[in-house]
Amino acid sequence: MNSQHIDPGSITRVAGIEVGHFTDTRRPTGCTVVLARAGAIAGVDVRGAAPGTRETDLLAPGNLVNEVHAIVLSGGSAFGLDAASGAARWLEAHGVGLDVGVARVPIVPAAVLFDLMVGDASIRPDAAAGYAACAAASSQAPAEGNVGAGAGAAVGKLFGMARAMKGGIGSASVTVDGVTVGALIACNAVGDVLDANTGKVIAGARTEDGLALLDSRRALLGGELPQSLLPGTNTTIGVVATDAVLADKAQAQRLALAAHDGLARSIFPAHTQLDGDTLFALGTGRSGRHPGMLLLAAMAAEATARATLRAVQATRSLTTPQGLYLPAMADWLPQST
């Protein structure tokens, strides 16, 4: 199957889901919000060893709060978690949140990726950025590539930033028998990105002369040693959502876990000690149907793989004022060695 000819869809095809981006014009960074104004059953699965997250503990199946109102994905490393506060402020201003009698408290988990090496590291998403992303949210298909949480993303960094390529944010969806599962993925992986249908590397580390794709798997197994990298300076984060009726947070957590299979198909290596790979799952229940967790899990993995592919297909090349050049798949079409 040629993935180029598949309509990728988007996460906003899931009823009850809206997406908004904020992209900072001062340097390549930004944040993205996934809104579920009516509330959505939520889960999370963290597979990377260096995550930067907010309010993930409340998503554990045994804990009290059952629904969330938004998920924030942000650049800026740990600083970017501030964006979630702005999202919560916007939701409160619009009457969205958990009713505790004296106030409505928006529940806004978040995850961040590290993009501080791309441009001026002192510029990162803050609360105002999160507020602006919410204000921009809609049910239209979201912009992809160099926007929002994907603005400063890069992939293929095992052999250094000088040999990396541009990452980004992408979305996709799968519909089976009236039920939809969508994904939104901000891909900032230390590893290469593959087309899950063909196994071919489509973006990632380049050869020393920069003129071709290296194929990190073959290089590592062939004895080429990776460059020493700081843990947490990468990370792929995202959200999977469905309009299926999920019974509880345990099922949402299972959906997030299954979505990581899509990352494993699309990124090599994934889930490393250098990444903070984190995926959230949302269930809006708007279809009124539950086709079974086996099918939903398969759909979540597929939507995640397609969204990861879109995250690099939609990017454009970038050169920072500091001289870092990150070629994009669409602008630079080498042949893999």
Rank of each mutant, 00 (worst) to 15 (best):
S3H: 09
D7Q: 10
H21V: 04
H21Q: 10
T23S: 14
T25Y: 09
C31G: 07
A36R: 01
A40T: 03
G43D: 09
D45V: 00
P51Q: 04
R54K: 15
L59I: 02
E67R: 15
I71P: 04
G76Q: 01
G76W: 08
A78W: 00
G80P: 05
A84C: 06
L91H: 09
E92H: 15
V100H: 09
V108R: 06
A111T: 04
L113E: 08
V118H: 04
S122G: 10
A127E: 12
A127M: 06
Y131G: 02
A132T: 08
A141M: 11
E144C: 11
V147K: 03
G148P: 09
G150F: 08
A151Y: 08
A154C: 12
K157L: 00
F159I: 01
G160R: 11
G167P: 10
T175F: 08
C187N: 15
A189T: 06
D195C: 13
D195H: 09
I202H: 08
G204H: 07
A205G: 14
T207W: 11
A212K: 15
L214C: 09
G222P: 10
E224F: 12
P226K: 05
I237D: 02
A244W: 01
A244I: 06
V245E: 15
A247Y: 13
K249T: 02
A250Q: 14
A252L: 01
A256I: 05
H260C: 04
R265L: 15
P269K: 01
F280L: 12
S287C: 10
G288V: 04
G288A: 06
R289G: 05
A305C: 11
R310E: 14
A311N: 10
T315F: 01
R316V: 13
L318N: 07
L326Q: 06
A328D: 07
W332N: 09
L333W: 06
L333H: 13
Q335I: 12
